[in-house]
Write a protein that binds this DNA or RNA. Structure first.
Lengths: 132, 132
DNA sequence: CTCATCTACAACCATTTGGTTGTACGTTAG
DNA sequence: CTAACGTACAACCAAATGGTTGTAGATGAG
């Protein structure tokens, strides 16, 4: 499986595209109804070309596709791409859960563990003694 | 609840922070084990200051927090923030599902009528007839 | 105390980004 | 056909980004 090639630069582009409020709004509009670029442009306080660029960013990120209808160009959100981005975040959450598991395990196997010591306890007393 | 204030500029920062491979890697490292900034810096082919800036971006986005331990500064991923970003994507997927539902409904309620004329019909037949 | 380490931050530079305007092209309406 | 519309794209600009180096402040080790 050479699927790994996609996921690095592609995730870059996807998150970068999502990091702008205007582009997220375009996504929201187009996920509900396909919209032509000019109709989108009318909805924002910027030039047509600016909106066109935003759509281009979303398209390069694979988040939307364009489809001709007459002289218009309809923009459509790709829900698969959205889910792909979500998976990247899911992985982070999974890793966190693994970490918590490891910590719980360490605590459990502590022999004379007297009480519910928070996991940070070992790295949390900076020996803030009488210095200063 | 004025929770809406957060979600706009904050989501901007979060996705922007996630839009860089180095920063995502930092997140992955720190979600598994807290790591000092200098230890992180040693892991990447760039200067200490550059890594420091990346951490600052992640911190402003609320994705990590820093905790002093002696002369080190430990970086820790905030799993809640990751989940918040995920929710933003979940909303998009939800909207898509609603759209599909609406479409299915339209299809379902179409009897065997030859010309189902919804209000949108006027902008929907491009009259791609025998012209050209 | 002194020294090495870790961090913070300013100044600077090249590149990218997000916006503008202007021009050109394809398609549909009359 | 011409005119109007929707789009594409180039050129340009200010601001942000991602990197560098250099300097200075805290903190722990010896």
């Amino acid at each position: 499986m050479v699927v790994d090639e996609l996921t690095d630069a592609a995730v870059d582009r996807a998150f970068h595209a999502l990091g702008d409020a205007t582009r997220r709004d375009i996504l929201r509009r187009c996920v509900q109804d396909d919209s032509s670029v000019s109709r989108l442009a009318a909805a924002y306080p910027m030039s047509f070309a600016a909106v066109q660029k935003h759509v281009a960013v979303l398209e390069r990120a694979g988040l939307v596709t364009k489809h001709r209808r007459g002289r218009e160009q309809l923009v459509r959100t790709d829900p698969d791409a959205v889910q792909r981005a979500r998976q990247a975040l899911d992985q982070l959450e999974l890793a966190w859960r693994e970490r918590v598991d490891r910590m719980s395990q360490l605590l459990a196997q502590t022999p004379d563990a007297p009480g519910p010591d928070p996991p940070e306890s070992m790295e949390n007393h900076p020996r803030r003694g009488p210095n200063r």
